[in-house]
Write a protein that binds this DNA or RNA. Structure first.
Length: 328
DNA sequence: GTAGGAACAACCACACTTAC
DNA sequence: GTAAGTGTGGTTGTTCCTAC
């Protein structure tokens, strides 16, 4: 067997080092671009990274376009140019017409090439520059479809046991959590933890995305506005009741809820909102996440978040703290 | 400062064929 | 057998703006 000379090894090492140095330098430039774009457009670095790594014309498509679709594409364009109504029924109508006429089957290969090229050009013109949940879901599906057979093969060859769990990163991700465990691992999970790998996956997903179990995604209506209104109402009614019960404050003299000067409000009235779920107490209008609103709404409905009277010691402590804050 | 609606963005359904 | 892909408008979710 030929052995590389000392010089050859040295040269190879130098080339390898240079390559990694270039890669690192490229990474640095890339990260700087991501950072500057996220700052410029006021988007998170995570979001911009997703767009940069996964989006644009490089976006992977696994299916080749067929002549049928290309012909539908051309017919739709002609329809638009002729000023015919488009609307959401237009595509259904055109696909039906194309299907019934069978015209698309009678092209020679040259015409077919033209059709496909036209559609390709159009696609290039309006390349998908945004990464959406759909793309992420497809990416996960395709990747797992490639990985899973490899893992099964590894199990067969070596006798090892494998399990994995894939969860969402945030509640708005549109793909579903999934998991896999080999047979012995499934049995072991059932005996040791009285739980299946699927349920562990689902629970983990719920914890990661919403921070607590039992949070249900809101899907109906203009929920944010409705929830905010309901939250405000429950808070106001609760405050009214507690001020009346504790201090006999009449309906006419009930203060408006001062979210922005909440500390001063506590010091003045000696009551506080206990069990607030979204950090510091603030105007529900500033809570932009629907899941955050749902959290708070559920807590108020379940009386986990409620108005309570401060004890004399607590009130005194709050007053002192507030005075110090004002002085500072 | 507060409340709520408007504007904007993202996602999905629709009929049909065919690549995978 | 399943789902991607063809274009548009309706629905849903988020952010911004205005009236009080």
């Amino acid at each position: 067997k030929a052995v590389r000379t000392h010089e050859q090894r040295k040269l190879s090492k130098a080339n390898s080092d240079a390559m990694w140095a270039n890669i690192e330098s490229g990474r640095t430039k890339y990260l700087k671009i991501i950072e500057s774009l996220s700052e410029k457009h006021n988007m998170s670095v995570d979001w911009m990274s997703g767009q940069m790594y996964l989006g644009g014309k490089l976006l992977k498509r696994n299916r080749t376009a067929g002549v049928f679709n290309a012909f539908v594409c051309r017919k739709m364009r002609e329809r638009k140019e002729n000023g015919l109504p488009m609307g959401r029924d237009a595509l259904a109508l055109v696909t039906k017409q194309v299907s019934e006429s069978g015209e698309w089957k009678n092209f020679d290969s040259e015409d077919e090439d033209d059709l496909l090229k036209d559609m390709q050009d159009e696609k290039e013109m309006k390349a998908n520059i945004k990464v959406t949940g759909r793309e992420a879901g497809i990416d996960i599906e395709n990747t797992l479809a490639r990985v899973q057979p490899e893992l099964l093969g590894l199990e067969k060859r070596t006798g090892c046991n494998i399990m994995w769990i894939l969860t969402r990163g945030k509640i708005s991700n549109s793909f579903v959590p999934r998991s896999y465990a080999s047979e012995p691992l499934q049995t072991a999970f059932l005996h040791l933890y009285k739980s299946t790998i699927e349920s562990v996956g689902m629970q983990t997903d719920a914890y990661i995305t919403s921070g607590a179990a039992g949070v249900v995604k809101i899907t109906t209506g203009r929920s944010a506005t409705k929830l905010r209104a309901q939250i405000r109402e429950v808070i106001w009614v609760g405050m009214h009741k507690s001020l009346y019960i504790f201090f006999r404050v009449s309906e006419d003299s009930v203060p408006s809820v001062a979210y922005n000067s909440y500390d001063a409000f506590i010091v003045k009235w000696g009551v506080e909102l206990s069990g607030w779920t979204e950090g510091e107490v603030r105007n529900p209008g500033t809570i932009t996440s629907s899941i955050g609103l749902a959290h708070l709404h559920a807590a108020l409905k379940n009386n986990e978040c409620y108005w309570r009277e401060l004890t004399p010691d607590e009130w005194e402590e709050k007053k002192e703290l507030f005075e110090q804050q004002v002085l500072n």
